[in-house]
Design a protein around this nucleic acid. Structure first.
Lengths: 212, 212
DNA sequence: TAGATTGTTAATCGATTAACAATC
DNA sequence: TAGATTGTTAATCGATTAACAATC
């Protein structure tokens, strides 16, 4: 759609949080909100909120503020939550199972279509409503079911291989929980969730708490 | 230890990644590395590497570069990986189970000491080697076992309550997987892992892939 | 010593905050 | 109309990159 200037990743990082707050505000029955009031709730500056939103267009109205429902919907569209995305999970371990059983993602339009693993002993075993499939069937499945997103929860040694296979078969994005960097072509979107790095940051901040 | 100037969170965010790369480089038997070679591997500028490291001291040597083993150890110390931290998990659902069964964290010194839930039906059931305990025992446990970190994997409705209870009992940091902001005193460290926000960023980047 | 590479200062770039005219 | 609040420009602040003298 718009091919104007590139939006900075700092802005993108904040968008889902706006979306979450606006969803809650909407649920509580509030219909309009000013950048100033939103800034109080979210603990960010009103200026930042207005700057961020104006990257995507003027959603507000002078003297009035923002219509909560409308802004919520618009941010949803920007984030691509207004459509569904087909997703598969590679890795039927504990984390894979946890993701399959979470309703959170389905609710946001990320539909899990299948679960893969390369442990023969797991073949056909069920996770939720899914029968685990063997990884050698993955590429065909991606093509037939038009899978856009691969979620990787396999150990880091196996991550690059499964990522490459999926990219070859046509996935556009990878949600990577393996603790390694996948080196993929530039047109493949990679979103890393490195839990042990998160825990190390926590550790650092805990040790250095109170330093000014 | 040092109480010099505050280190920016951008630097802290990168530290665990340096640590990971250095660990791999060390494993591969390489003993020294220049900022330039590390920059090629990590796809960041050599300048940034040197700036980041020099926040914590001069770990290198002119004309030589950095000793891999030494730098790895030093970054470990900075991150607090050179000691152990007692941790508990609140929420014995799929995600809680996945975290308990992961060896990754234990290896880094984050030792899980117990798992709590408030579903009576789960009382005494086992996850790995842990018997699930009821949440009303949590505060006593935190005090007796000197727990520093609470991991929250309960639904967002219950998250604030369990966080407040744990803080009252003395935890210093919270690793929060619940999709909500915990409003806690300033001296409590909170590290959020908001998976659905991560997925929304992936979605945005996928839709806008190729925009320049 | 000559070559390499750091540690650090200076320059640039980008992101955040402040201010205010436009306008509902 | 008067008051409120946006959209947007300008000012500030901070982070990244470039450059180079120090030094191993």
């Amino acid at each position: 759609m718009n091919n104007e200037k590139k939006i900075s990743s700092a802005v993108i990082r904040r968008l889902p949080r706006y979306y979450r707050y606006l969803g809650e505000i909407k649920e509580s029955g509030i219909q309009r909100i000013s950048s100033n009031e939103l800034s109080n709730r979210m603990k960010v500056t009103a200026s930042q909120i207005r700057q961020d939103l104006n990257n995507f267009g003027g959603f507000g109205q002078q003297g009035y503020g923002y219509n909560v429902e409308y802004l919520y919907e618009e941010i949803g569209k920007i984030l691509g939550i207004d459509r569904t995305h087909n997703m598969i999970i590679a890795g039927a371990g504990n984390l894979g199972q946890a993701l399959v059983n979470s309703e959170d993602f389905t609710r946001r339009g990320f539909i899990i279509r299948g679960v893969f693993d390369n442990n023969k002993e797991l073949e056909g075993r069920k996770i939720g409503k899914f029968e685990i499939m063997m990884s050698d069937k993955m590429q065909q499945f991606i093509k037939e079911q038009q899978i856009e997103i691969l979620t990787i929860t396999v150990p880091k040694e196996a991550a690059k291989e499964v990522a490459n296979a999926a990219v070859e078969a046509g996935v556009k994005a990878i949600w990577n929980f393996a603790h390694t960097d996948l080196n993929l072509p530039d047109d493949i979107v990679v979103e890393n969730v490195h839990l042990s790095e998160s825990l190390m940051r926590l550790s650092y901040n805990m040790i250095n708490q109170g330093k000014e």
